[in-house]
């Protein structure tokens, strides 16, 4: 992964099919594979794909995202997941106790402006999206600040088995949550340094020697 790969553009041919199945970011015409995006091609053992270098977040079932509550409805909450598609959090996916909907103002559980780390529990073909707090890691996030990065850069910010994000957390003494939707929540001591490190990774995600540069930025 650390190896530098060439950038491809939409419509550019990608070699290396050899029985691999098509992943994201590519399309096929006849026997030939083309890129859909400006991105970095990834050819692993059985899949060929292109990771876009820009673009908005599109919801995928199972993704863990950071959302901001933007509306309290009768039976749940509207959640902004940094996507053109808004998500809905139904009461049953958010609260364990019995809620008498006729009598309860459910804003006592979640209110407009609350920040939640949650899981996409349902995404229909037409992109109607449901999120859920029924996940061990799901929680409401208190205080802190939020920054947004290109969603496809999130894996690089997390690093192999979480190595990069742990390094940033330790060196800046910050709590950090990363949503696959490109939203990052930070609370703690040296937020400025944490932001700088994250934005550097976002900018230089496809270059070599990134880990070393981040280490020196954080004073390792």
């Amino acid at each position: 992964m650390a190896e530098y790969r060439d950038v491809v553009i939409p419509g550019e041919k990608i070699d290396g099919r050899k029985g691999r199945k098509l992943g994201n970011g590519v399309y096929q015409e006849g026997e030939i594979i083309f890129s859909k995006f400006v991105g970095v091609p990834r050819i692993d053992e059985n899949e060929i794909s292109v990771i876009p270098l820009s673009g908005v977040y599109l919801p995928n079932m199972g993704d863990k995202v950071i959302g901001i509550v933007e509306g309290v409805e009768i039976s749940g909450w509207l959640v902004d997941i940094n996507s053109p598609y808004a998500a809905f959090l139904p009461i049953a996916e958010a609260v364990d106790e019995f809620v008498d909907m006729a009598r309860t103002d459910i804003s006592r559980y979640f209110d407009v402006g609350d920040i939640v780390f949650c899981r996409l529990s349902k995404v229909t073909k037409n992109k109607t999206v449901q999120v859920s707090m029924r996940d061990p890691s799901a929680r409401k996030l208190y205080g802190g600040i939020i920054i947004k990065v290109t969603p496809t850069k999130i894996p690089r910010i997390i690093g192999k088995a979480g190595s990069m994000i742990s390094l940033i957390k330790n060196k800046t003494k910050c709590d950090i949550y990363t949503g696959q939707n490109g939203v990052i929540w930070i609370r703690g001591e040296d937020k400025a340094k944490a932001i700088e490190a994250i934005l550097t990774i976002e900018k230089e995600s496809h270059t070599m020697g990134l880990t070393e540069r981040i280490e020196s930025l954080l004073g390792v």
Binding site: I68, I145, I146, I147, K148, K191, I195
Partner: peptide, 9 residues
């Protein structure tokens, strides 16, 4: 949301 950080600063 970066504005909250701007305000804090």
């Amino acid at each position: 949301m970066e504005e909250l950080y701007a305000l804090e600063l």
